[in-house]
Design a protein around this nucleic acid. Structure first.
Lengths: 327, 327
DNA sequence: CTGAAAGCGCTTACAG
DNA sequence: CTGAAAGCGCTTACAG
């Protein structure tokens, strides 16, 4: 360690300087070390450090191979947050379904190459997968009732149904997302709950997989006399499929059928009709998932969840009064 | 190293076993080591190894914070390929523009924590950024003429314009992508080139940024008497904006205006009208970018680029004969 | 074909 | 407040 010699001190002292950023050291020593560090453009070798401490300072992010596109905002926010806290992120792309994801995670933990794991997509039962190991599933973050308050993801769902009811809609269809995602399960549950609570009617729930095709099929399979006047799609992409099918069946949106999406992608604003949707703050989501994980890694209490809502309803052209309410 | 003792050999021999997977070792020794490894569920400590070898076995993937969504297929394919070759991927999310991305990359290289860098978004002049350091920019991969043959990304562009010309179109508009992306620059260049080569007319090129809004604005700003009958949008999302504006101006697609997108997102198939687009094999793109990077890291010759094309034209409802050719 | 010695750059007690 | 000793788990020559 040349820095030590240049600063006229020992490498242990330099090590202390970097670990505790000079806390409890003589000002003169700090001064000399800082000069030497700058002069030599020295950076501590993180690998040697982690070998000694047995702490990797690394967090693995498990990505599915199956999604066509992914909110990179979430990933970036997570990455920035990790770096701010001295962690680096390792990408682990996993092909195949939940089973291979679980296997890969077990490997990661077994090899001890990471301090924590963050999964973007569902991994099933966590308690059995990695008992005691720091693991956060962003897709499931809304499952964590303590952190979020019950049904955080659900409350926009309730608002959507309520607003449609106010517009005179009485009979609904929900095109659900893939049931392995808790966000999909939550929306579905709150949908049913709200329907019951308000004394409305659900014509049914179409099992979907987040694809436009699932939305398309759901509408194409709807009987002519179903009486459905409003569709709640689990995502914008699903809703695009709904719009397409409605047009083929010559149902006008929103005159004959109101449609809601979720995600507020840019295309929601520019589709015809423009899609009512739920804006999600992916950045906050990524940042917060990472903070939760880091707290677990450090065995600290979980951070407070932001008090403001991450979800915001945006009403556009695809929603309107129920047919019998129109002039 | 307990494995050594259990196998009745030295830890050096065990090390050799893992490094050369047993090459040039006595079968009996291998046998004993394998049994011991299995029994103890032993995995070599990669961190200790990389401390000794001064090779990190890590590749950083630089992600922009700005894109709304990103092809996770590309990322996953890159990750899987990296792991197959014994590398792990570190995610580095960078907020801000190209300047901050360049700074972050220089840091990464300076700290020596990675063997190579793969950037998803443009980083500007590479030769000055990291002379000699293994660096691949996937967005720019099509710049690498040696690997791809000239204008690999451009050839679908030429095909698009040619097919439109065959349908009788004579006057075109191009809504370009963000000029810092070489794919955008390529498409633009080949667009102009093909227009000239076929003796057609370009009414103009609208400077865009990959957003739906840029497509929307381009059409809203088009003079009524522009004579444009075909629009080549730099991406599907841009094309969605084009469709929206065309509808507002009461131009039918494709009767009055033909529209092409690029990416073949799922929504292209389900928009109305369904969008003609270019299907891109993101998986091959991710895999190949990673193979190129790994070759650089190992100072090996660059791998052959796949002989089949990664791009495939898909014609849908948004394209048709020029107005004066219609019955 | 295999083992004993030395060292990668750091941190961790332990003295002083 | 700072330094000398020991060791994290591996690999690298060097012998044998």
């Amino acid at each position: 360690m040349d820095v030590a010699r240049l600063a006229g001190t020992s490498h242990e002292t330099v090590s202390r300087y970097f670990r505790y950023s000079g806390m409890g050291m003589k000002a003169a020593t700090i001064q000399r070390i800082e000069t030497a560090v700058k002069q030599l453009d020295y950076h501590p070798n993180l690998i040697a450090r982690s070998m000694r401490t047995r702490v990797t300072g690394r967090i693995a992010v498990v990505l599915p191979a199956s999604t066509q596109s992914m909110p990179s905002r979430l990933l970036t926010a997570a990455s920035v947050t990790a770096h701010e806290n001295g962690f680096s992120l390792e990408i682990v792309g996993v092909e195949g379904g939940m089973a291979s994801r679980r296997k890969r995670i077990q490997e990661l933990i077994g090899w001890g190459q990471v301090d924590g794991v963050m999964s973007i997509s569902p991994v099933g039962d966590v308690s059995e997968l990695a008992p005691g190991f720091p693991l956060v599933v962003t897709a499931e973050y809304d499952d964590d009732m303590r952190a979020l308050g019950a049904l955080a993801d659900g409350s926009p769902t309730a608002e959507i149904i309520e607003s449609l009811a106010e517009l005179g809609h009485r009979r609904f269809l929900h095109v659900a997302g893939s049931p392995s995602w808790s966000s999909a399960r939550n929306r579905r549950a709150v949908y049913l709950e709200t329907i019951t609570r308000l004394g409305l009617e659900s014509f049914g729930i179409a099992d979907g997989d987040w694809s436009a095709e699932s939305g398309f099929d759901a509408i194409m399979n709807l009987p002519h006399d179903s009486g459905v006047t409003a569709v709640f799609a689990a995502s914008d992409v699903v809703a695009i499929g709904v719009l397409r099918a409605a047009r083929l069946r010559e149902w006008s949106v929103p005159e004959d059928l109101s449609v809601w999406g979720w995600d507020d992608l840019e295309i929601a604003r520019f589709s015809t009709p423009a899609l009512s949707s739920v804006n999600v703050d992916r950045e906050a989501q990524g940042r917060h998932s990472m903070l939760r994980l880091i707290a677990k890694v450090r065995s600290e209490p979980e951070p407070e969840f932001p008090s403001y809502s991450l979800n915001r309803l945006v009403v556009r052209e695809s929603t309107g009064p129920a047919p019998d309410r129109r002039a």
